[in-house]
Nucleic acid binder design. Sequence first.
DNA 1: AGCAAAATTTGAATCGATCCAACGAAAATG
DNA 2: CATTTTCGTTGGATCGATTCAAATTTTGCT
Lengths: 358, 358
Amino acid sequence: MASLTAGNRRPVRLADIAKAAGVSHGTASNVFSRPEIVREEVRERVKAAAEAMGYGGPDPKGRLLRAGKVNAIGVATAEPLSYFFDDPFARVMMASISQACDATGAGISLVSAANNEQLAWNIQSALVDGFIVFCIEGGSRLVELARERKLPFVALDLDSEDGAVAAIGVDNIAGASLAARHLTDLGHRRFAVLALPFADGRTGLVSPEQVRSATYAGTRDRLTGYLQELSRVGIDTSKVPVYETANDAASTKAALETIFAAKEPPTAILAMSDKIALVTLEWLSARKLNVPNDVSIVGFDGVPEAAMSEPPLTTIAQPIAEMGRLAVKAILESDGKVSRQLLPVELIVRASSAPPRG
Amino acid sequence: MASLTAGNRRPVRLADIAKAAGVSHGTASNVFSRPEIVREEVRERVKAAAEAMGYGGPDPKGRLLRAGKVNAIGVATAEPLSYFFDDPFARVMMASISQACDATGAGISLVSAANNEQLAWNIQSALVDGFIVFCIEGGSRLVELARERKLPFVALDLDSEDGAVAAIGVDNIAGASLAARHLTDLGHRRFAVLALPFADGRTGLVSPEQVRSATYAGTRDRLTGYLQELSRVGIDTSKVPVYETANDAASTKAALETIFAAKEPPTAILAMSDKIALVTLEWLSARKLNVPNDVSIVGFDGVPEAAMSEPPLTTIAQPIAEMGRLAVKAILESDGKVSRQLLPVELIVRASSAPPRG
DNA sequence: AGCAAAATTTGAATCGATCCAACGAAAATG
DNA sequence: CATTTTCGTTGGATCGATTCAAATTTTGCT
């Protein structure tokens, strides 16, 4: 391992090769950053010195301080890092964010952490020009941390009503209404709701009080949209089971066990995410319940997987690609203003919904 | 927009609040990095000043230079950034990389670029402690750039035989043999190979010369493995069509059109990636050709999607999770040594392979 | 050769923090 | 009361580069 040219471990600095080549560090710097302004003979000499000493090029750490811009945007979530690659919604969103970044040459830093303490540190020390915050669980804390950095940032799919944070989201109430309306129009009257979390670390049937004190406004809004439509057609919404899941397979299955243990199980299920809906599809199929004949389901999100399930899922599609693009734009062209954008959603009717039996 | 406290745009620095609070910058720094060593009264005063001046906490750009470590690893590819979220293989690999990073608290920076020039710049200026390089197309150039940074780096699934670069890969020859052996054991004798790229930007039937001069050793090795086994059972391998694809739907379909236009189409297809194999499954199904009765297929990679296709895909599974873990470990615990690890693969028999008709 | 203009090179200042040796003050000890 | 400890604070040095005004060398022209 011992190199012949360098005695110790200390990495080679620009100043070292400047000295070796007998030029000032200013010139040495120019050789790398604006080679055209230095005389060829000198340029070659410096490059040769760099080569000989094993110099890896100007260290971006040094450059960064002077330049000020990192040229990367941070994408933050309170979930584990693998969320970005595992979750279908996140994946589509990230794909569109990364396309927008590619187009402008910006890089992406993934910021996340298992525990809260680490998260704070990670956000505080992330080398980025701005943050896009995925507001899932722990969203409010995340938003607060990001805001403390005083960098441009935008919350995606925001669960906070705080008008002071920039956010890009969809009209949850309208979307949920649309989903419910689709099912009531088909004639359904017995419903169950598979909800996203209302608050952290809890699952199970939720009471109206719990809904009222929900941490996550997005979840509450979707529920509001659902129930609004259901009561419009005369359904007693206090009788509609609302089961809070953690947006994962385990809690969704637990929810389904409970819901289908009832004497009069629902003929229609409103799922607040496609992920929940897809797990439900699987569970029902294992139970030999036919979708859409025995049970209809409408999801929420519009992830690609929803189009390829068996049967294909009726869902409320968010303009995910558009949201990603807008988020990147908001960071890169940040003018210090906070703006909140509410995008429209779209009902996509596929084969998971049909009129109820009989 | 105009703030009452700050006249101009210039961001607040630690030195500013130190002055405002009437302490030295050293003390001000301590308030944030080691608050326990500064007297409470002073600490509060400094914090108050920070709050009042809208200070966002110590700028990591400054800290970084002193600290030296970024605490993030870069993952680089020559594909567009969205590759990380779109490609099934990359996704699984990234999920395992991110789990390993999470465990150690390291962040992830995604490095990539549309064009070659930008790529060089992005790699040179990436703020990372090391690189994991995805060697797909343009792998060798990428490896060279990464190596120039003189940072720890490891190539994944390396397509280079250069013993001087650290790499983690699988035994391509053995894996390919395994795939071919499975099909010959079932009795197949008419084969076609759907290959990954041998060189950049080319698709189509390949000649033996083109194989010999392949840029990508990984592709060549897989082919070697296939043909080795085929000739073992007496097949004239010069007659086996080898079609080079770009590992995408378009070129794969073009390949299939060509291959199935032959008088005696193959009864078995060896696909060098699950992605290719899955596209093939779709194409065959659209052509009303039954898998595995009309045609058998064996993929390569072992992505999750392969287990859920119709029919489920027989494939050669790489230990993707293990590879990701090892790669992260190699970066974080880099000792300057270059090591090359060849991991074993495993044949997973599912429903896409069966004995040929008749 | 003589002089102005153009091309290069220099070296100090800067980016925003952290670290640490040295110092002063207050508290503890003999 | 003198002396040691302990505690908190200070300010200079440092991390590794870029930038720019000023100094210097070259080149161009007569």
